[in-house]
Amino acid sequence: MTDTAPAVELAGLTKTFGPVTAVDGLSLRISPGEVVAFLGPNGAGKTTTVDMLLGLARPDAGAVRLFGGTPAEAVRLGRVAAVMQTGGLLKDLTVAETVRMTAHFYGHTRPVSEVLERAGIADIADRPVGKCSGGQQQRLRFALALLPDPDLMVLDEPTTGMDVEGRRDFWQAIRADARSGRTVLFATHYLDEADAYADRIVLVRQGRVVADGTTAEIKNLAAGRLVRATLPGADQAALAALPGVQAVEVRGDAILVHTEDSDLVARHLLTRTAARDLEITSRNLEDAFLALTTSAA
């Protein structure tokens, strides 16, 4: 049955806007129950991918399957719901009216009072949407997405433009909802959000997946150190062959070695080569993120 199908299956997804390739042959498979961060800088193609995933945009090439069916089928059955970045609310309705109205668009929903409670907006139920803060409106969008009790929840940069407190409240609401079995995919360009909330991080750059792994694995990519030394005529291949070395760059007389084992590299450089001025610096997640997501110079 469809229940054994992956929650999300993107195959060779491509979308171009004129001369710009926003999404470039992106493939991704998400199993039911996974909480996945779709992490990348602005313009990496996250929103375009999310739009295609939800059936709001048609891919130029490639295919989208949600639970083995089309996005439209998943939407019609309330299996997928989404919190989009902006817009999408009627200012002249109250918070509760918006939820009540939307509830009638589904064949089956959770109770209105329950989703208001879970989204943390029960206390502002009678407030006109136009008078709600950005964070409150975002939690209202989250409440709407909770209505069908979806098997897949998609959040597109849900906290963009929120202040620190708003972000914290929003994620608190999401965490409070974290019932087992719900698949969550959220696009973000905030590293800390991906780190704090996701089981798995998919790093995207220029419409492609550049790294995909558990949060720990992605952190490992970043756990390495940078060994810098002056070594004219360095044997780049020999250095790259050392255990734990991820990358070797040569800049004039200087070499930069990205490695998981800086001791080994330092020992090698100082004992087997003429290297001098040796420096070891650690890289953090931020560096890894930048290294992986900014275009290679």
């Binding site: 939800l54 939407v75 019609r76 902006t86 817009g87 999408g88 939307t102 668009f105 589904y106």
Partner: peptide
Amino acid sequence: TERALGWSRQLRLTPL
């Protein structure tokens, strides 16, 4: 108005 506000887009994420 509803198209300008993006509400129509929001509705496309519901079975309506």
